[in-house]
Simulated scan of single mutants.
Amino acid sequence: MTTFKHSILSLAIGLFSAMCIGGCAAEAAGIDEGTTADAVSESGNAKKSDYGYEMKDLRLVSGEAVPAADAVTPDGRVAPEEVLRQANAKIPALRACYAEALKKEPGLSGKVIVRMHVEANGAVSSSRVSGGSIGDAALGTCLAKELGSITLPAATKGVLEVIVPIELDPADLTKSAPAGA
């Protein structure tokens, strides 16, 4: 009986460890994994996503290292680290959008939340502003367009919903851009 209890305990510890390891890289990347997410396409048709991620605030000078991970997880999802890598690659273009908006309104700051709907083949089918504290429509359109141009790897898990909050501060444009920007 004692051996059976130890086997159950070992199994429970192993499962807990596997769940923690699977989620720790995403947590280190600042991404909150969701199991499902609702989306609305550009045409207004409601779509249901198979899974989703809400990223931490993206700063235009972040250049943070992204934890190493495969682009697609063993269960067929696009890895959250891959989403973060792709978003970070767009920082130079996002900086250009923001710099243009600052020419019209110096001191413009706050947050813009971009929601992207990614099809199973990795193509972004919609990218739109879904909230935030900045009312500059042209800036929001530019940011959503740039993030919507990413291409993620195909995933067997299905459709992905990604929420990207972008924190905008004029001081960030005076700081050096991340490597490669």
Rank of each mutant, 00 (worst) to 15 (best):
A99P: 02
K103D: 15
S41M: 13
A154L: 03
N121I: 02
A87F: 05
D57N: 14
R95C: 11
D136R: 04
L94D: 02
P80C: 04
C97T: 04
I21W: 11
V61E: 13
A120G: 03
Y53K: 11
R85F: 00
V83T: 14
C20S: 12
K47D: 12
V72I: 09
D169Y: 11
T2I: 12
D172H: 08
E82V: 05
A65Q: 12
G63W: 02
I134Y: 03
D169L: 11
E64K: 14
I13R: 06
L173P: 06
S43D: 15
C97S: 03
E82F: 01
V40L: 01
G34W: 08
L58M: 12
E146D: 13
P67Q: 07
K157N: 04
G107K: 13
P153R: 07
T73N: 03
G131Q: 08
A89P: 07
A68H: 04
L152W: 08
I21K: 01
P106W: 05
A154Y: 06
I166F: 01
E82I: 07
D169M: 11
G52H: 05
A29V: 01
A123R: 14
V159H: 00
C97E: 08
A28R: 09
A25T: 12
K157F: 09
E82L: 04
S176F: 14
P170Q: 06
C24M: 13
S149E: 15
E105C: 04
V129G: 01
